[in-house]
Design a protein around this nucleic acid. Structure first.
Lengths: 232, 232
DNA sequence: ATATTGTTTTTTGTATACAAAATGCGTTAA
DNA sequence: TTAACGCATTTTGTATACAAAAAACAATAT
């Protein structure tokens, strides 16, 4: 009965379920390790098990849930190692992204990038971390589009998902906002000027700083006794 | 009735179907643009539509098939652009891979890498392109494992899949075998010596040459009237 | 001959039914 | 008290049934 996902109408139920579950995982309403019961989900969303199962297969391939045959699906755990792995790959791919953008960006996209950069600065000024996160995504999406590589877009989207929870938290960190602005500006200017080397190194520094923020956050948590289960 | 996939026994049917379909796509027995009829597949493999549908959802997320709601699944088309996109990403990630391998490879893995490198040289000597392709995969897998990054492994596997058909063909190219040996050896030596810069540039050159071979192959085909369908 | 409309057939989407494995629980025996 | 066994329940895996959309086809009118 509860729909909880807009923009459907003629969307197959499996996609509705998929988006709904993904949202709950990314926003932390379902936490790593939680068992995903097909019957629970289907009754909660008012559909049968069939679309639920298909959605689970999709989430499995995305890496958000882990299947054990005959034992069901669980929300994938995030370890520090897995986060390190993601960040390493992102560093290379973000560098690639801005390098490609340097040579392929159109004048219209340059304009968009400027706006996105300015919007980010304004968002930081408001100190509203939701707005900051949104503006951050917009800036990076603009760069990604300018790179004109569809496969890169797919992979980066997938990597971003893995970082979603942490992105929100590292942006909440009190200190680094001004640094973020500077880093974005540096990337922006390099891309506009078509300076591939400088753009790449700026992108790498940007990720490197995120890594530091995220890892300090993880370690901080490790101190506290964190192993609570079932937030509902 | 026809099983066509070994190593199952207690594998869920969806995985059997998934592997079976993937194999047929990768080996070209089903070609891009082909319509995948659920009922055909299920009767051919002797299972019901349920596991077939779940397998299709997985292949969709992997990018091997493209779904149109209410209109079924088709094998994804490979365009020159999509191949270029894949190669660009691979260049960055292969460079990352060997850089990581430089600092993380164990002495045991160094040994494996040496063996893989030598096996590749022997394979080239036989001039059997199937053997060459296998040895090539072995060499790259060894490097990938040495990099100790699970996410990188996943992504590279996915990218390799997209190139599977072409890998076979470019390896068939008469000219480049000796070059391949030299390139591998250069990568091998750099990694053993822990020279990140040299390893990265060697890896990039390696991919760059593959790009040239693959693209010449694609262009060659474009000349001939290639739009045949249904090879069965 | 072509376009349009209506009808039949095919195909996908969804729900449900049934089988088999896994889980949980209580009982019994050491 | 604990370990082990068996039974009941839950949960996943698979098949099938039914609904609805799309495609194929035929007939009619222009």
């Amino acid at each position: 009965m509860n729909n909880s996902q807009s923009a459907d109408e003629f969307m197959p139920l499996r996609d509705m379920v998929y988006k709904s579950l993904r949202k709950e995982i990314l926003t932390g309403r379902i936490t790593p390790g939680d068992h995903l019961l097909e019957l629970d989900i289907s009754s909660k969303l008012g559909v049968s098990r069939t679309p639920v199962r298909e959605a689970l297969r999709m989430l499995e391939l995305e890496g958000l849930v882990t299947m054990q045959p005959r034992r069901g699906a669980r929300v994938s755990k995030i370890t520090e190692k897995s986060m390190q792995d993601v960040l390493e790959v992102r560093e290379s791919l973000d560098a690639l992204c801005v390098e490609l953008a340097c040579t392929r960006i159109t004048s219209q996209e340059k304009d968009e990038l400027r706006k996105a950069c300015e919007a980010f600065e304004r968002a930081v000024a408001t100190n509203d971390s939701r707005k900051i996160a949104e503006a951050d995504v917009r800036f990076h999406d603009t760069l990604l589009r300018a790179a004109k590589n569809d496969r890169l877009v797919d992979i980066e989207e997938n990597l971003s998902q893995s970082m979603y929870r942490f992105r929100f938290e590292y942006i909440n960190e009190g200190n680094g906002h001004d640094n973020l602005v500077k880093e974005h500006r540096s990337i922006y200017e390099s891309v506009i000027n078509g300076d591939r080397e400088k753009a790449a190194s700026a992108a790498r520094i940007h990720i490197e700083n995120q890594r530091a923020a995220i890892l300090s956050k993880i370690n901080e948590k490790e101190q506290a006794p964190v192993n609570k289960k079932n937030n509902r």
